[in-house]
């Protein structure tokens, strides 16, 4: 009986801690968003974060997208060949990339790059008193450190996903035409005939949400880090893990909302 009560109490504490954490992150996000509409605005910091996310993440996102498109073409071809549906390869590639794999894989790649980098940078600023120094220099740390990054992430990831979609489809086209024997014109026609605007737009909406999540968790984990170098390391890990899980969870929710009929 005592053991059962202990387990229940432990479960209760865990749930309460989760709820407390979720509430704290929500308040953090709300405060950061409120700074986006109140001056002063730090355009220079926004641009710096935007270049860091959009430009410097481009190689890793591009490579991931190309190889994913190539693998997708190969896998769907060999799978569909079992019931003579090889002709659907182009459709499967484009729908998978634009609706799911483009935004999710770009989000996960950016979580690894940017989420970790933001958490490490802001965490180091926390443990070396730089965040306190901002306050003593009449600068709100949320406005200076968090708000520009949040905005940059939310805008940059959809742009990265446009590139990822293009390169992913191109990867499928390369394999389709060079290895699987499709005619180039027929492959492209099949790709664009079945593609609808909503397939692309839904992916871009997801990307904006994922960009927000990645930058939010990077900033949150860094902002609340402590305990010296080890604390910064923990914050970095937490930023990548939490944003990756939240990307996958929110992907399900967004898909359920956007594609439920």
């Amino acid at each position: 009986m005592d053991r059962a009560l202990d387990l229940t109490a432990g479960l209760g504490r865990f749930v309460l801690a989760m709820l407390r954490g979720a509430g704290a992150v929500a308040l953090f996000a709300a405060e950061a968003i409120s700074h986006l509409v109140r001056p002063p605005f730090y355009g220079r910091l926004f641009l710096k974060a935007f270049v860091e996310i959009a430009w410097f993440s481009l190689p890793v996102v591009a490579l991931t997208a190309v190889f994913t498109g190539m693998v997708l073409a190969l896998q769907s071809y060999t799978g569909f060949a079992r019931f003579n549906a090889e002709g659907a390869v182009a459709n499967v590639v484009v729908l998978s990339i634009t609706r799911e794999l483009g935004p999710v894989l770009a989000g996960l790649m950016v979580a690894g790059r940017i989420g970790a980098a933001f958490a490490a940078e802001i965490g180091t600023m926390r443990v070396t008193d730089q965040i306190d120094a901002l306050t003593t220099l009449s600068t709100n740390p949320m406005k200076y450190l968090v708000a520009p990054r949040l905005l940059a992430g939310t805008i940059a990831l959809p742009l990265l996903v446009v590139v990822a979609n293009t390169l992913g489809v191109m990867g499928g086209w390369i394999i389709g035409t060079q290895q699987l024997g499709f005619a180039s014109g027929a492959y492209l026609k099949a790709t664009f005939d079945f593609l609808q605007a909503w397939d692309v737009i839904s992916g871009l909406i997801k990307a904006a949400v994922f960009g927000f999540i990645v930058t939010l968790m990077g900033c949150w984990c860094g902002y609340n880090s402590g305990g010296g170098a080890q604390g910064v390391g923990r914050a970095t890990t937490a930023a990548v893990v939490s944003s990756s899980i939240l990307i996958l969870a929110s992907d399900y929710l967004l898909t359920a909302v956007m594609f439920s009929r």
Binding site: M125, T128, D129, Q130, D132, A133, T135, T136, S138
Partner: peptide
């Protein structure tokens, strides 16, 4: 904030923005 505007602070480790 107006009060803080009139305050300067030297931190132990400098806390310079790297």
């Amino acid at each position: 904030e107006a009060v803080n505007d009139r305050i300067g602070m030297l931190f132990q480790n400098g806390a310079l923005f790297d």
